[in-house]
Amino acid sequence: MNIVVCVKHVPDATADRKFEDDFTVDRVGVDGLLSELDEYAVEQALQFREKREGEEITVTALTVGPEKAADAVRKALQMGADSGVHVVDDAIAGSDYIATSLVLAKAVEKIKADAGADLVICGMASTDASGSVVPAMLAERLGLPQVTLASVIESQGDQIRIKRDNEGSTEVIGATLPIVLSVTDQSGEARYPSFKGIMAAKKKPLETWSLSDLGVDAGEVGLSVAWSQVEDTTERPPRTAGEIVTDEDGSGAGALVDFLASKKFI
């Protein structure tokens, strides 16, 4: 069995994230890293493998992105994934969800032909675009059951059961492999790469594929053909410094309530 984990290289959320002149995300000026929410996906892939001792299970980390995006795959390899695939092509720059999911789906199909793709795992969202739509698009394109936003994952044979929080309820979802699974940050702390893992990762295979390797036409992807276009971006003005009081002998509560009353919240 082979598990494909989709990982994204994103600008560090704690840094000063910006846009380029063409309104695409600045992926050069800000240090990038494996999206935190994808670490949980890698973790669940590794746990799936570890829980099934005796079965032959491999984990392939897959990313789509510019040159530096390979670092996201490397991190997954350091955590314990067995092999990596990096789809990189200048034509992909500026792709929307639609085109990104197309490239991912074609890459999963190619991995499937070589090594299998019985389980595709994604994080619940990227930390840059925060759309939470690519896992569903991937399921749609691959024609696989969509089992998303899992906080607890259990499996037996080819049966998967997950628990998830929906708007007003907790749900249990069941499906039969192969599926597309997305996991939340509730699914379990992601491991740190060990020294041994970091050394081992250097010897693990990391393939680089272009669009032509996937049979995707360059005209189907990228900024110019995106089905939605950004017209403008505006930096929000910094919030003006507010009034800070220190609570002394109970003065804080009075000041707080006076403020709320002055703003008509009471």
Binding site: D96, V133, M137, E167, W227
Partner: peptide, 20 residues
């Protein structure tokens, strides 16, 4: 979250752009 996923699949099905 659920509707965003419905929208995601619909976008692919009908060949339309999506804004979330």
């Amino acid at each position: 979250f659920e509707n965003k996923e419905v929208a995601a699949r619909l976008a692919i099905k009908i060949g339309s752009g999506l804004i979330t």
